[in-house]
């Protein structure tokens, strides 16, 4: 009984730390531009797909490398692709509309998301792509719960990346420029901050984190497909809202919390409702949490901003 609980908690933590990485991408963009980057989920998907393709190409070429190194090679390909994509999306679809009515960039964002999704389907097809089995599958015992090397690596890497991001935002020049832009872009511009560069960098950094997260998702579930971006993006967005959108700590806490809520909820929903609702309703939790947060505490757990402006 207890070990099942710990297992669910652990699964929640793993998925949650991935959500947190993606949520950071949403929250950074939202903090600076007050825009929901709908296409972020698609960037996550493309990161996963490029990595899988890259690893498969290397394997086909007969390269003999240990699994983790192959994975790194794949990531080394996927991260720049995602960064470039993030940069291009901002440049083409969002920058011209910075002063347009709020509905306009939202609609282009949806358009970009569709284009990326369909392009991915043209390139990689409609089917699930299995993640190449190159990683060790040894299972460790953790207080009665099972955890693999991969999952340990996911948690550690996620937290290292988050730490790096916090360092970047709090301690570097670029980070200061980003914080200034999120407070007031016009004044930041007057103070000599190049707003366009800052916004571009925000998209690039968020996309890089998204690509890594995409690979984590694919490796954790052993598969990736062209539609995965939508659901994962939506959940990460929920995580960002839960924590308070625009707030980096909020995104981290919201992500982990959502992962745990989902995992525990899916595990115990069947028992709680006497078998009426089962674990196949797992995907509903994110929406229910989202709607509940927006109704009862629209600024999120740690947020400053209230979601009442149009």
């Amino acid at each position: 009984m207890v070990d099942i609980f710990i297992q669910q908690l652990l699964n929640g933590l793993i998925v949650g730390s991935i959500y947190a990485l993606i949520a950071l991408g949403y929250t950074m963009v939202y903090g600076i531009m007050q825009l929901i980057n709908f296409a972020h989920g698609e960037i996550v998907m493309i990161g996963a797909m490029v990595t899988i393709t890259c690893i498969n190409v290397l394997l086909d070429a007969g390269v003999q490398l240990p699994g983790p190194l192959l994975l790194l090679a794949g990531l080394a390909m996927a991260i720049p692709v995602s960064m470039l994509l993030g940069f291009t999306i901002e440049r083409v679809a969002y920058r011209p509309l910075r002063r347009a009515p709020r509905l306009a960039p939202l609609i282009t964002a949806i358009g970009v998301s569709i284009v990326l999704q369909q392009a991915a389907m043209l390139i990689w097809g409609r089917n699930y792509r299995p993640f190449p089995s190159i990683l060790p599958t040894e299972v460790h015992d953790f207080f009665g719960a099972a955890i693999t090397d991969l999952q340990i690596a996911i948690i550690i890497l996620a937290f290292v990346l988050m730490g790096g991001l916090f360092f970047l935002i709090e301690k570097t020049r670029l980070g200061r420029a980003m914080r200034a832009t999120s407070q007031n872009p016009d004044v930041a511009g007057l103070m000599g901050v190049n707003i366009n560069t800052v916004i571009s960098m925000t998209f690039v950094i968020g996309s890089a984190l998204g690509a890594v997260a995409g690979v984590m998702v694919a490796a954790n579930y052993d598969q990736a497909h062209a539609y995965m971006g939508f659901m994962i993006g939506l959940k990460a967005f929920t995580a960002a809202v839960l924590g308070g959108i625009g707030n980096l700590w909020g995104a981290v806490i919201g992500g982990i919390l959502l992962g745990i809520i989902e995992s525990l909820g899916a595990g115990y929903l069947g028992d709680l409702t006497g078998g009426f609702l089962g674990s196949h309703y797992k995907d509903i939790f994110a929406f229910v949490v989202l709607i509940a947060v927006l109704i009862f505490r629209p600024s999120g757990l740690m947020g400053e901003r209230v979601a009442e402006r149009a």
Partner: peptide, 27 residues
């Protein structure tokens, strides 16, 4: 529930609502 929301938040919540209905139809 969404009376107080506008713009992008509303978009996301309505999207979630649509998906909830579909998931229920499915299950």
């Amino acid at each position: 529930p969404v009376l107080k929301l506008r713009g992008d938040y509303l978009a996301i919540v309505t999207l979630g609502f649509g998906e909830i209905i579909r998931i229920f139809l499915n299950n």
